[in-house]
């Protein structure tokens, strides 16, 4: 839990942006920051470095937390409510998407007390189908846009992609940044693209996928996180799930530090979504522990933390059943869609 007395109670110093000791009124310090590569570079490279070994050890230590009984039950239900149930395959069909939406609304047909997931995440072409299925359910509809997963398309194509998805009923857009531009130091280009897509989103929430597996260093993850937040992203998301390295606990730790510091600096809260590779209840609970002990309880909410996953849901349901019945369940008792 963050004690805001300590976060906000200090006078800003010249480098408070490093940690976010700034009061909310200091947001204007970031005004115009996106105007040039140089300005962004000065800012992003002035962020504190991340020591790889230390960050990974912290994540590993948090992974040893032992979450049992009541805490586990609470965490499982929360994790279910945080799932962005995802299908992003070339083979996706309306039938597949309909089935997924049904599962999202009622994950465990045998147990109505199992909560619905946070959202369904599909390609833009599947948005109309999903919108129909999810209407009135309270389950959000997310769509990847902006030439997912490579991000390699002209800006106007990305904008059109986004507008189409929103028009078709998506209330959340998952965009990918151009890693090529980021790694080449063309920060303003990445910044401008996020700003443009955010504008195209209208009221829809924008999740900015950093594709951390391609950013190579935690320093880059921290910088990309800040870049996405400064440009207006509502969520920062680890991965497309389409490159070999997807979400990891330490990457998520670094991103949670970034959103924590960003809120302290600007007053604006940004969500975090690890995606890809989180398959077990045990893993999901480790993430929740990292959330709890990094950004704090304010992020322990589906509005501020999501799991981009597909197979995770069934494992959560299986573990949930085990806690309720006292014996282990099997995959045959949960729907595969």
């Amino acid at each position: 839990m963050i004690n805001h007395e300590y976060v906000h109670g200090r006078q800003p110093t010249f480098r408070l942006s490093r940690l976010g000791g700034m009061t909310a009124t200091a947001t204007s310090a970031f005004a115009g920051i996106g105007r040039s590569d140089a300005a962004l570079r000065t800012f992003l490279h002035g962020l504190p470095g991340v020591d790889q070994v230390g960050a990974e050890q912290r994540a590993a230590m948090l992974g040893t937390r032992s979450i049992k009984t009541t805490a586990k039950a609470w965490a499982i239900d929360l994790a279910i409510r945080m799932v962005d149930l995802t299908t992003l395959e070339g083979a996706d069909t309306p039938g597949k998407v309909r089935a997924l939406c049904a599962k999202a609304r009622r994950p465990d047909p045998a147990d109505p007390s199992a909560p619905a997931v946070a959202a369904v995440c599909v390609y833009p072409s599947m948005v109309p189908v999903a919108a129909e299925e999810l209407a009135g359910s309270g389950v959000h509809l997310a769509s990847v846009a902006t030439a997912f997963p490579s991000g390699q398309a002209p800006l106007d194509v990305k904008i059109a992609d986004t507008r189409a998805a929103v028009a078709a009923g998506a209330d959340e857009i998952d965009m990918v940044i151009s890693r090529g531009a980021f790694l080449a130091g063309r920060y303003a280009e990445v910044y401008d693209e996020i700003v443009a897509v955010k504008e195209a989103c209208g009221d829809a929430h924008l999740k900015v996928i950093l594709e951390t597996g391609e950013l190579a260093t935690y320093d880059n993850v921290r910088r990309a996180s800040w870049l996405a937040m400064l440009a207006g992203g509502d969520f920062i998301k680890t991965s497309t799930g389409k490159v070999p390295v997807a979400a990891t606990l330490p990457v998520t730790l670094v991103m949670l530090e970034a959103v924590r510091d960003f809120r302290a600096a600007t007053g604006r809260q940004v969500g975090v979504k690890p995606a890809g590779g989180i398959r077990t209840t045990k893993d999901a609970i480790k993430y929740l522990v990292v959330v709890n002990e990094t950004a704090g309880e304010d992020w322990l909410d589906p509005d501020w933390f999501r799991f981009g996953a597909s197979t995770l849901l069934n494992d959560l349901l299986m573990q949930r059943t085990k806690l309720k019945t006292g014996h282990y369940s099997g995959p045959d008792y949960f729907t595969v869609d």
């Binding site: 839990m1 004690n3 976060v7 200090r10 110093t13 408070l16 000791g21």
Partner: peptide
Amino acid sequence: ESVYDDVLASLKRRMAL
């Protein structure tokens, strides 16, 4: 001294955990 406030704030936040 130039990061004293930041480090102290972070340390206290961390100690509360």
